[in-house]
Design a protein around this nucleic acid. Structure first.
Lengths: 210, 210
DNA sequence: TAGATTGTTAATCGATTAACAATC
DNA sequence: TAGATTGTTAATCGATTAACAATC
């Protein structure tokens, strides 16, 4: 694989967010045994502009062939590598309600390097249970697990009123990224990355846009 | 409530997405019996720029008082009305797995006008079950329900491989908005609004941004 | 070859931020 | 009154889109 120049981390968030869709299309092309795929084709499948696809793909360092397109295998590798989806990312889920359980089973995670190694809940009847081979522990074990297992991502699906309290524990234990599925605005030190998955804001878009 | 001029629907998507957070802060202020709140205070609670908050709030038609801020009750009403959260929106959930079940129970929906009146599943052992007073029906009833009950929003949480098939049924029955929780790019006619809730793209951001 | 596609440089578009007069 | 905050107009910033030469 020729990476030629290493393009700095100059990918915008919108670009990063589109890459998984490209990867979907490309993986499907690979299943169909296509050797080569053009930005034009990817764009039309996703109803995007070809120029946007080309610009986005460029950040992964891929080099295409004029008139032909991109080598499918090479492109798959380039995107996976750019996204770090070719490496394991240890994660935990905090709160094993329906949402937490759904996320543990989400196929798009495991397929792409996310390794959920444990879940946590404060309810005694959930502790000790096993969800798709993921063991549920008591909250008191949270801190220890983060420290000992070098967890990268904490997926937070507890009820909103406990969100900040749990976050404080996570931060003290040295977590580096929190995926926040609650409606709470979390207060964290600047070195901790919080990504908010905000269903209310999406619902707002639906409500306004008809 | 003085709405003065009716500002066209010239709110950007990012603005619309921020409004629910403002509403959260404002509702909390109301619980504390505050009469008035400034954009500066809202901004600092959410770690945003005051100018952004003022600009965003302006789209709701609210008029503040220099040196004082906004009337809390008036502002709450203005945002709720702008978002159409003061009206009922009939919705259905298709696919009552863990994710569908979680969404049926999501408090931020019911509180803000979303009225989930039914759910659908293809598995016989789920049909007839009751989740938080929401009845699960067989998929064969889907089309009829949409037509008879004037459903506005279909929340799609079926496995990806059935997403397009179900979508076709929804579109044929005359749905106007689909909230797509699958990874599938849905093909719909241009008059149907599809909002994709894309966990893969968020996971990509987390993976790249450390 | 002719023509489709890439990749780069420039133009456009839209959202965020800054500046500041008006105001209570 | 003095000073904090609003709301408007202008400037900046960044992402998307357009144009086009290079190329296989």
């Amino acid at each position: 694989m020729k990476n030629k120049k290493f393009s700095q981390i100059d990918a915008s968030i919108p670009t990063i967010r589109r890459l998984p869709s490209y990867l979907n299309v490309i993986r499907r092309a690979l299943e169909k045994d296509l050797k080569v795929i053009s930005g034009t084709v990817i764009a039309s499948e996703l109803e995007l502009e070809p120029i946007q696809v080309r610009k986005d793909l460029a950040v992964t360092g891929i080099v295409g062939k004029p008139r032909v397109g991109y080598d499918v295998k090479e492109l798959k590798t380039a995107i996976e590598s750019f996204l770090n989806w070719d490496k394991k990312h240890k994660a935990i889920v905090i709160g094993t309600g329906n949402l937490g359980t759904a996320l543990i089973g989400y196929p798009g995670f495991r397929q792409n390097g996310m390794d959920i190694i444990a879940s946590f809940d404060s309810s005694p009847e959930k502790v000790g249970k096993n969800i798709l081979n993921v063991q549920t522990y008591d909250m008191s074990k949270l801190s220890e697990m983060i420290k000992n297992e070098s967890i990268e991502i904490a997926i937070l699906t507890v009820p909103s009123e406990f969100a900040q309290e749990v976050t404080n524990t996570l931060v003290d234990a040295g977590i580096s990224a929190i995926w926040n599925f609650t409606n709470e605005k979390l207060k964290v030190p600047s070195e901790v990355l919080v990504l908010r998955e905000d269903l209310s804001s999406s619902y707002a878009v639906l409500s306004v846009c008809k």
